[in-house]
């Protein structure tokens, strides 16, 4: 109380006092900002199984755009979306879903995207099949029933894009020798990451899980080219002649030392 009275009486603050106070405030607030920034960076790498709603911008842009209003959550007809709470492994207040609990039902009218006032969920997404919430990965081939030669097929059957996003790849069952293995194969160019497969997996712990694309996908080096594709584009082999090296047949070691000219007898 006394301090405040003194303050209001002597209106003039000395330059030294002003600079000291300002420096004091700037430093404390700077430290606070640094701490918050560190916390922010930590929470940016959220739990791998927390998926963003359809149309969500990439994580950093999303965290700049989302105002945590929950309009997407309230407009989700299936109670799929939730807002993260403090200490949950997703940035506080932002919407996410856990596919194993409630997957995205891929509504045709995408109400969550329509509800978003800021564009954190990109309004350019008008066809739900173009959504890329993540990508399903058959993470455990050792427990997947289909991989043991059984016909579970549940993930394949529930897939909204059956026969496109998940197909069954037929191989021989070497255990029995006479049966087939129907391996569920996810095609990442089609899969929306809705999580219906993960939700439906009959195992105690799902063998197929939806993961963020950046976690699940490999990426070719920018300079890589598939030879067979380039060959097709060019209409001919890109390397004119195959250099023919001598074959080393057993017992003909001595002869093979005489290197035959290219195009010679094999």
């Amino acid at each position: 109380m006394a301090n405040r009275k003194a303050d209001s009486r002597q209106q003039k603050v000395s330059r030294r006092q002003f600079l000291t106070d300002s420096g004091h405030a700037a430093c404390s607030v700077g430290l606070l900002g640094l701490g918050l920034g560190m916390y922010g960076e930590q929470s940016k790498t959220h739990a791998a199984l927390a998926l963003r709603p359809p149309g969500a911008l990439n994580e950093n842009d999303f965290l700049g755009a989302c105002v945590r209003c929950g309009l997407c959550v309230e407009d989700c007809p299936y109670d799929t979306l939730k807002l993260a709470r403090l200490f949950e492994p997703v940035t506080t207040g932002t919407p996410y879903f856990d596919a194993r609990k409630v997957p995205c039902e891929m509504c045709d009218d995408i109400p969550c995207v329509k509800a978003c006032p800021t564009g954190a969920l990109d309004p350019k997404l008008t066809n739900i099949d173009d959504a890329r919430m993540g990508v399903a990965v058959l993470v455990d081939r050792e427990t997947c029933l289909n991989m043991q030669g059984l016909r579970c097929d549940v993930c394949y059957r529930v897939c909204p894009l059956i026969e496109e996003a998940i197909t069954l790849n037929l191989t021989q069952n070497t255990r029995t020798g006479v049966h087939a293995i129907f391996e569920p194969v996810v095609h990442s160019d089609i899969c929306t990451g809705c999580g219906k497969c993960e939700h439906a997996c009959v195992l105690e712990e799902a063998a197929i899980k939806v993961m963020p694309r950046e976690l699940a996908k490999g990426e070719l080096g920018k300079h890589y080219r598939w030879g067979w594709e380039e060959k097709e584009k060019a209409g001919e082999a890109l390397v004119p002649d195959i250099i023919d090296l001598p074959d080393r047949m057993p017992g003909t070691q001595a002869e093979s030392l005489n290197i035959a000219p290219a195009g010679g007898k094999p």
């Binding site: 900002g33 918050l36 920034g37 916390y39 922010g40 960076e41 929470s43 940016k44 950093n60 842009d61 965290l63 700049g64 989302c66 105002v67 945590r68 940035t91 506080t92 207040g93």
Partner: peptide, 15 residues
Amino acid sequence: FATPLVTGYVVWELV
């Protein structure tokens, strides 16, 4: 106002 400029996301809303 300064932290979003640096980090590219809304920092105060964390807390």
